[in-house]
Nucleic acid binder design. Sequence first.
RNA 1: GCGGCGGUGGCGAAACCGGUAAACGCGACGGCCUCAAAAGCCGUUGUCCGCAAGGGCUUGCGGGUUCGAGUCCCGCCCGCCGCACCA
Length: 815
Amino acid sequence: MAEARYDPTRIEPKWQAVWAKERTWEVRNEDVEPDRKSYVLEMLPYPSGEPHIGHLKVYSVGDANAHFLRRRGRQVLHPMGYDAFGLPAENHAIRTGVHPRESTDSSIAAFQRQMRSWGISIDWTREFGTHEPRYYRWTQWIFLELYERGLAYRKEAAVKWCPNDQTVLANEQVIDGHCERCGHGVEVRQLEQWFFRITDYADRLLDDLDAIAWPEHVKTMQRNWIGRSEGAEVTFSCGSLGVDYPVFTTRPDTLFGATFFVIAPEHPDVMRLAAGTGQEDEVLSYVNHALTESAEERGSAEAPKTGVFLGRTVTNPVNGEEIPMYVADYVLMEYGTGAIMAVPGHDARDFAFAEAHDLPIRRVVSSPQGEELPYPGDGPLVGSHPDFDGLHNREALDRIVEWLDREGRGHATVSYRLRDWLLSRQRYWGCPIPVVHCERCGVVPVPRAELPVELPDVSDYAPRGRSPLAAAEDWVNTTCPECAGPARRETDTMDTFVDSSWYFLRYCDAQNDEAAWDPAVLDRWMNVDQYIGGVEHAILHLMYARFFCKALADSGLQGAEEPFAALFTQGMVLGPDSQKMSKSRGNVVSPAPYVERFGADTARTYICFMGPPDQDAAWSDESVEGVHRFLARLHRLALDVAELSDDAAPAAPEGADLALLRKAHWAIEKVTQDLDGRFAFNTAIAAIMELVNDSYRLREDAGPGARRFAAATAASLVFPFAPHLGSEAYERLTGARVWEEPWPEADPALLEADSYELVCQVNGKVRDRVQVPSDAPREELEELARAAPRIAALLAGASVRKAIVVPGRLVNFVV
RNA sequence: GCGGCGGUGGCGAAACCGGUAAACGCGACGGCCUCAAAAGCCGUUGUCCGCAAGGGCUUGCGGGUUCGAGUCCCGCCCGCCGCACCA
């Protein structure tokens, strides 16, 4: 055995230097052939400190995919950038006074250094940070495009406010009533804010999910988030006040069971309704209490159903009945119309409220199994109206809606859970919103030629309920582009999700200083063929990016309706204790020390081997060493075999040569199938391990030609996971550069053996195994199985009722 | 509560279409090499009974379909993730 040690610290920098010098992974837009392109993209990192183990995982997974596709003849676009605006850098600045740009840039430098040491095959000519003016200039440009189409708008709204971060939050950034960033309880405030009209796209965002190859659970989460409900809007009138109140219901079939009516505490008419009824004081104190409650206190379905009588009634449009009006916090202002008809017989919440307030409960749908009320299921209508009683409720539903429509008291409609995207933030470290406020002209967009509106430097980053930018007086005071009079710049910045909603478009044409992109160039690369990232972005980022693409497609600015044709969500790397990594648990594993000690190839291959990449998996130091052992074994094998005579693989192999060549072709076939869209990296690597094991096992008996082919094949197959070692070993064995070689193809003749082991069962239990010729017909297989010694013994005094023959697998005798 | 995913050796896992359960790796045990150790190489390793030959049992639990079920169907239990007073 050769004695040269496997030394990644020598091998890895050597090949990285070759790739950098030769610009191996760069692709030129001019050279792209549309039917050969593959756009492989991992979610861009948020640069904070050093890269962590999760980054190593996404980029190892993505790089394996990129390498495989290149060697299958694809022109692969595989770029990298940084999602560089955001709160952590700003909070750091508030603590330390260090400019967020400075800490962000030093983190980016750490990412660049480490990702290069990992040998990831990136086209670095397309790199950018979203905080660079040459990028956010175009973020602002897109904002103006959307503004002019009415898709970006300003309105005062009840918004979620984080008192700790002193900023508003998007609905999506509120988790269980708490700020996604800092965990502080969220309050509701009335503020004027900027929104994107994503709700206009609700149906398309929903329908187009069917056309993309995404994991089912991600699609489900998006569907739930959009929350489309079909139902009807029905008008109840308050005669004493002369006002109509529409409600949304998914169950117009239960209208005859409505025994009271409820509006949300935030409803603008609450006090007007209570006025003069003697209920004012009670209502006022209830509303005040409800509005100061935290989202969490108010949020739970288990919370007791509180509420107060408003002193008035409304008329049920289907039967003219006067039913009492209540204000109660279980009704939400932001969904539907902020008012509901309450049907306690068939809705659990209304039932709870009715019981607590002693209101009538009426059954209008009979339950086939005799279930008690509240009964939310289907069944024939009862106690409603002679025209509808006896009809199945789903049919009655349609008929009732038709009737309402004819009478002008309601109509079929659709309601969504999805809200418009609140994009303004009262924070410093973000992309400035490119508008000015003029006393005379109102909101005026900054002319395109004046973009970017650059983020000015300030000395105090702490938010004080307004953006820190407001303190930059020289910057804020400007002139109106329309009337040239005095104007003030918008001081809010954009949510960082805006920056990351289009970065994949910019990669296609990253050097373009004349436009955000050349549409012809975008047409060549888009859409992203394979997107890779964590499930934590299943809703926010992935929904926003889809919305942007659709909105930009509608403006004719680009052609991709869907940004990401296929999505792969990788699982988390857990700590050695199988717990989520966290500083407080002290179980954080950093990539750098492992890369230093074992090499990037070992770290990358281990990460791909530790389990199916879409599942969570715990880090294990022992297993890392096992993978390192495997790579060292392959390295040693290559050195040994390289010293043998330079024979070609035998054309008519026999014995050990045949066995080894078969194993090599089996491995080619297995790895190819595992990598081809399956991301089954763990089993692909296992197959290469088997090939290496057999190469050792047969090293005394197989000839140099077969041994060289087997070793070179192992090097070639391992390349997507361990590119440096793959290149090194392959070069030693063949003199060629593995990344310039096409992906190997299995020879079908060597995939078939001329005999196989036939399993012989009696009553479904394996009793014997015999070697049989591959081409044996069924009758012969049955005879051979009968003749197997242990089978013959068992069948001896028994009568065979049936024999099942599965060629290629088994024979089963039923006795 | 609703939706999704999962439960297989001591551990990470494999079994892609209903056809040999446990590939590959870790760990453990044994052997070779060595003055010795490390490294390396070669074995054994689901579990129970048995000296062995061999046999029984085994994919969270209980049923079912089938010649045959980890895989399909029905009913449970447990874990993780998402949503959750959305009318």
